[in-house]
Design a protein around this nucleic acid. Structure first.
Lengths: 191, 191
DNA sequence: CGGTCTCTTGACGGAGTTCAAAGCTAGTGG
DNA sequence: CCACTAGCTTTGAACTCCGTCAAGAGACCG
């Protein structure tokens, strides 16, 4: 189960074989059913999650009561509300399983111990966050540059399998518009 | 000049005093005049910049030819197009001085050497990127939750001095709307 | 002071939302 | 394995936020 994580780490830093076991020991494997919440708004985000199998999402509920998805996490992605996680303050976000999912969880305290014991992992997490930061810069560009229709078409072209995998209303809430409008877009782009 | 950087690093990790000089040596101090470009679209983002004094912005030019600001960097912030910087691929972004600015620059090669010589800095940069990642999650929330008017009011309340500091058309391009609309908002909220 | 850059104002249009209702799909239990 | 139900998607009409264009008023710099 922790194999996936060890493999992923090894892509970015070289890991002595005998460390794998000790590192694995820090993580708690958990399973969640579709729609199950890993965390709810008002709570502190206690865990940092690594997705082994399945799909998670980070979302919040806006003033009108509808869910807005901030981020998805597929296999080999990390997810947390990082503001809440690092400062152990209450979060405004939910984390939910989009599909039945297997994840590895580590709390902030254990993560500090892990990093203290294996400082080489600071580099791994630095790279993870740097890539996320880079992705956020590009996402920012798209939202300023394209109409919502172009965003959907671009997204559907870039991640065709992902679009198949999640329900449309989640996609709409991620791209920042209504399911109704997504439906309209799709009918327009169907010959 | 590198004092500001050393101070900033010391906020996040404990740094043996005698390392300060060696670390400083990796950085090139540079000055830019208001409106001067540190980097232009089509080039590779060769440097990672730390702002000692002044203000930088990361922006691109959209299909209609108008500038869209992705990110500002004030004193003690880092800035780069991280996709371009890490992979040394050509960038679609510009980096420009909003005010006369003093910065420290380090290229990707030197940064790798720096991190190799002082692995403790991996932790520093991990924290920097993690905070940026956290900020991106919250920015994402705001753009989904609020109207443009609410975004401006919220932003103006959160960073009143910054709003004074930069021209309105840059603020508008950062918040994702037109200077005309910003003007309209301001007149509405003036009694 | 002259010219360029920045901010304001107003009319109009269009992309995207909201609300409501009906059609479809998939999962669940009998 | 079928039937039922809850959840998801589609459609359409009215409405709103915000962009576009154009023209003028300030403001800042040499």
């Amino acid at each position: 189960m922790t194999e996936a994580l060890i493999n992923h780490i090894s892509r970015y830093i070289s890991l002595p074989e005998h460390d794998a076991g000790a590192i694995s020991g820090y993580f708690t494997p958990l399973s969640f059913r579709k729609k199950e919440n890993l965390m709810a708004a008002g709570q502190v985000c206690r865990n940092h999650y690594f997705v082994v199998k399945g799909c998670l999402r980070l979302f919040f509920i806006d003033e009108k009561g509808s869910e807005q998805t901030i981020q998805f996490a597929l296999e080999n992605w990390w997810l947390a509300d990082y503001t809440s996680f690092s400062n152990q303050k209450t979060s405004a976000f939910y984390i939910q399983a989009v599909e039945n999912s297997a994840v590895l969880a580590i709390d902030v305290h254990k993560q500090e111990q892990l990093l203290a014991q294996f400082p080489a992992l600071e580099r791994y997490f630095r790279i993870i966050h740097q890539r996320a930061h880079a992705a956020a810069q590009y996402r920012q560009q798209y939202t300023h540059d394209m109409t919502r229709e172009e965003m959907y078409l671009h997204f559907a072209q870039s991640y065709p399998d992902f679009v198949q995998r999640v329900p449309q209303y989640l996609l709409a809430s991620f791209l920042g518009f209504t399911p109704e409008y997504l439906s309209e877009i799709r009918s327009r782009n169907r010959t």
